[in-house]
Amino acid sequence: YFQGQLNAMAHQIQEMFPQVPYHLVLQDLQLTRSVEITTDNILEGRI
């Protein structure tokens, strides 16, 4: 994955969860590489 793709995914998640800091979303995406998994992590309070 290149950074631009991760940034696009992070923006997509931020639209759904504007209360979660962008850098935390991006940090999780770098591990998961998945909008779905990061979204689940937010919903389950891991982020």
Rank of each mutant, 00 (worst) to 15 (best):
Y1V: 12
F2K: 06
F2Q: 12
F2V: 12
F2E: 15
F2H: 13
G4K: 13
G4I: 11
Q5R: 06
L6P: 03
L6W: 08
L6F: 07
N7T: 12
N7D: 11
N7K: 13
A8N: 09
A10W: 06
A10I: 08
A10Q: 04
H11L: 13
Q12A: 12
Q12E: 09
Q12V: 11
Q12P: 01
Q12F: 11
Q12D: 07
I13F: 02
Q14T: 11
E15F: 08
E15Y: 09
M16N: 07
M16T: 06
F17H: 06
F17E: 00
P18V: 03
P18N: 03
P18I: 03
P18D: 03
Q19D: 14
Q19K: 12
V20R: 00
V20P: 07
V20S: 03
V20Y: 11
P21F: 06
P21S: 08
Y22P: 14
H23D: 15
H23K: 06
L24S: 07
L26W: 10
L26T: 03
L26C: 12
L26V: 10
Q27T: 09
Q27D: 08
Q27L: 12
D28I: 06
D28W: 06
D28S: 04
D28N: 05
L29A: 00
L29E: 01
Q30F: 12
L31M: 11
L31R: 11
L31F: 11
L31E: 11
R33C: 15
R33L: 14
R33A: 08
S34D: 07
V35I: 14
V35N: 02
V35P: 06
E36C: 10
I37A: 10
I37W: 08
T39V: 15
T39E: 04
D40G: 15
D40N: 15
N41H: 08
N41T: 02
N41F: 04
I42R: 01
I42L: 07
L43T: 07
L43D: 02
E44N: 14
G45I: 03
G45F: 04
R46P: 01
R46T: 05
R46K: 10
R46Q: 04
I47A: 03
I47V: 10
I47R: 02
